[in-house]
Design a protein around this nucleic acid. Structure first.
Length: 487
RNA sequence: GACCCCAUCGUCUAGUGGUUAGGACAGUGGCCUCUCACGUCACCAACGGCGGUUCGAAUCCGCCUGGGGUCGCCA
C-alpha cells in the first residue's frame, strides 16, 4: 500500500443553515482525517450565483469551529485558515482552463442550445417516460460553426461527452462495487453559460487539486460518481477513495429536511441540547463501534471510528434517543455547571430576581433532557397556576381533598409562626407538625407541595418550594389552597 | 417510467452458515422515594415474502414486495 497522507474535505454549499445530516458528513470526514493523522479541508461550494445567501459561509465556519471540527489549511485570513471558496477560485480561471483542456482532448464539447430547446427536450422525454438525455445536437458542430457562434457571442455551456458504450464502475467503501452503463449517462454540463463551473465539475477539479484522498459525501452522489471517474480518467488523475453515506431520515419516507424544522444544528442548540451530545448522537446514526458503547467524546470517536462500520441503509433521526443522550451528558455535570447552562432558560421562565434555585437545582437537574425543559418545570414560581381540588388526590400518599384541607389548616398557622425559612428547617418543622397533630407526614407534604405549586409535578418537595418562593408567597398560596378545598 | 442503491424489535443497531437472534432508546410493570423524576429490576418487541444452495440459513443466490436516490446551466 502506498502510504499517502490522508486528506479529506467537507464541501458544503452555503444555504444559510447547517443541516444535521451535513454535519454528520462533516464529522465523518473530519474523523477520517484525524484517525489517520491526515488533513481536513473546508471548501465552500458556492458556484450557484442565484442562490447566494448572506452570512451563510460564516455560519458554516462558526458551527465547525464551535463543534471542534476544525480544518487544517486554507487561505490566510489574518493568521488563521479561512475556507477555500470556489467562487474565488473561479475568478482565478481555474475551472475554465481544465474544461478547455477536456475539449481539446475530445472529452467535452461546447453546447449552444438554448434553455428553451432543452426544456422541449425534457418535456418530450418525460412524455415517453424516458430518462431525460441531451440529444447531442451540438456534439458534431463543425469548427466553422463553433467559431461563428463564438464570434457572434452566442452563450454556451461546456458538456462532458460520455462514452457511447461500455460500463463504468467504481468501488465505494461502504456500498461496495457499483456499475453504471455508459449509455444511460447524460452529457453533464461542466461549465454554465455564466462561466461558473457546476458542482459536478468544480468538485472533481478541486478534489484533485487539493489532493483529496477520501471523498466523503451523501449517497445521492453515488450514481454520478462514475461520471466523475470518467473525468479523472480523461485528465489522467488518480481517483480518490469514495465513502458515500446514507441520508438521515425524518421517517421511513422522508429525509430530515429544513421544512420539518428541527433539522438544523442551531435548532437543537437553541433548545438547550449540548453540542457534544448532538455530535455523539449523529455519529451513531449510521455508524457503530462494533461493541455496546454509545457515549463518545470527540477524541474517543477518533479512536473508535472505522469506515468499514458505516451502514448502508438510511437512519431515522430519533429525537427521543438524542434527548436521552443529552440527559446523560447533563447528569454528568456538576450542579453548578448545570445551573450555569440552564440559567438562560430559567430566566425565561422566572422573572423574579430574588429566587435561590440552588434548593431545587438537584431535582431540576435530574429531570432535564434539554435545558429548555426547565421552563415548564418552573412556571409556578412567579405565579400560582390555576388548579382544582382534584390535584390533591393521591392514592400513593393516601390524600384526598378532605384530609388535605385539614392538613393545610394545620400547616398555615404553624408556618406563619415559623421564621427559619430555610428548606431543611422547614422540612423538620413539617415532620414536627406531623407528630404534634397526628396527621400523616405524607399527607402534609403532598398537600403543601400542591398548594404551593398548583402542579402535579415539581422539581422539589413541598418544603423546597416553600423555601424558594419565600414565606409571604407561601402563606398566600396556603390560604388559596384552603379556599379551593373549602369550595 | 428508466437507471442505481437499501431491507434484523416502533427507532438506532450487533450479527458475515450452527446464537435461547445480543445491546441501547422508547413503551409497560415492580422496587426505591417528602409527589413526579432520577436510580434500579423485570417485561414487551425483529430477521418483509417466496423459491433455491446447504446436513444446517438473519447470514449465500434468484425473484417478488416495500423503501430510498438519480434523471437541473442546484449542490
Amino acid at each position: 500500500m502506498n502510504e499517502k497522507r490522508v486528506r479529506t474535505r467537507f464541501a458544503p454549499s452555503p444555504t444559510g443553515y447547517m443541516h444535521v445530516g451535513n454535519l454528520r458528513t462533516a464529522l465523518y470526514a473530519w474523523l477520517i482525517a484525524r484517525k489517520y493523522n491526515g488533513t481536513f479541508v473546508l471548501r465552500i461550494e458556492d458556484t450557484d450565483q442565484e442562490r447566494k445567501v448572506e452570512g451563510a459561509v460564516d455560519l458554516i465556519y462558526r458551527t465547525l469551529a464551535e463543534t471542534g471540527l476544525t480544518h487544517d489549511e486554507g487561505p490566510d485570513i489574518g493568521g488563521d485558515f479561512g475556507p477555500y471558496v470556489q467562487s474565488e477560485r473561479m475568478a482565478a480561471g481555474i475551472y475554465m482552463k481544465y474544461a478547455e483542456e477536456l475539449i481539446e482532448k475530445g472529452f467535452a464539447y461546447r453546447c449552444f442550445c438554448t434553455k428553451e430547446r432543452l426544456d422541449e427536450l425534457h418535456k418530450e422525454c418525460e412524455e415517453h417516460h424516458l430518462q431525460t438525455k441531451y440529444d447531442r445536437k451540438c456534439l458534431n458542430l463543425t469548427k466553422e460553426e463553433i467559431q461563428k457562434n463564438l464570434d457572434a457571442g452566442v452563450p454556451y455551456v461546456i458538456r462532458q461527452k460520455m462514452p457511447d458504450t461500455g460500463v463504468t464502475g467504481f468501488h465505494d467503501e461502504v456500498y461496495g462495487d457499483i456499475e453504471v452503463e455508459n449509455s444511460t449517462m447524460d452529457d453533464l454540463i461542466l461549465i454554465k453559460s455564466d462561466g461558473y463551473p457546476t458542482y459536478n465539475f468544480a468538485n472533481v477539479i478541486d478534489d484533485h487539486l487539493m489532493g483529496i484522498t477520501h471523498v466523503v459525501r451523501g449517497s445521492e452522489y453515488l450514481i454520478s460518481t462514475p461520471k466523475y471517474n470518467l473525468l479523472y480518467d480523461a485528465f489522467g488523475w488518480e481517483k480518490p477513495v469514495y465513502v458515500h453515506v446514507s441520508p438521515v431520515m425524518r421517517d421511513a419516507q422522508r429525509k430530515l429536511s429544513k421544512r420539518d424544522g428541527d433539522a438544523s444544528y442551531a435548532d437543537f442548540i437553541n433548545k438547550g441540547c449540548l453540542k457534544e451530545a448532538l455530535l455523539n448522537y449523529i455519529a451513531l446514526l449510521g455508524w457503530n463501534p462494533g461493541d455496546d458503547r454509545e457515549k463518545f467524546t470527540l477524541s474517543e470517536l477518533v479512536e473508535a471510528f472505522d469506515i468499514s462500520r458505516i451502514n448502508k441503509s438510511p437512519a431515522i433521526f430519533d429525537e427521543a434517543k438524542l434527548r436521552w443522550l443529552n440527559s446523560e451528558y447533563i447528569r454528568e455535570m456538576s450542579q453548578e455547571e448545570f445551573l450555569k447552562n440552564a440559567m438562560p432558560f430559567i430566566k425565561k421562565a422566572v422573572k423574579r430576581e430574588d429566587v435561590n434555585f440552588d434548593v431545587i437545582a438537584a431535582g431540576l437537574h435530574k429531570r432535564t433532557e434539554y435545558f429548555s425543559d426547565v421552563i415548564p418545570q418552573l412556571d409556578f414560581v412567579d405565579e400560582l397556576p390555576e388548579y382544582t381540588k382534584e390535584l390533591y388526590i393521591s392514592k400513593k400518599m393516601k390524600t384526598d381533598p378532605e384530609n388535605s384541607l385539614q392538613a393545610l389548616k394545620v400547616l398555615k398557622p404553624e408556618l406563619e409562626a415559623f421564621d427559619e425559612w430555610e428548606h431543611e428547617k422547614l422540612y423538620y418543622k413539617v415532620l414536627d407538625i406531623a407528630e404534634k397533630s397526628g396527621i400523616n407526614k405524607k399527607v402534609l407534604l403532598w398537600s403543601l407541595r400542591v398548594a404551593l405549586s398548583g402542579k402535579e409535578l415539581t422539581p422539589g418537595g413541598g418544603t423546597d418550594i416553600a423555601a424558594i418562593i419565600g414565606k409571604a408567597e407561601s402563606l398566600k398560596r396556603l390560604e388559596k389552597g384552603i379556599e379551593i378545598l373549602s369550595a
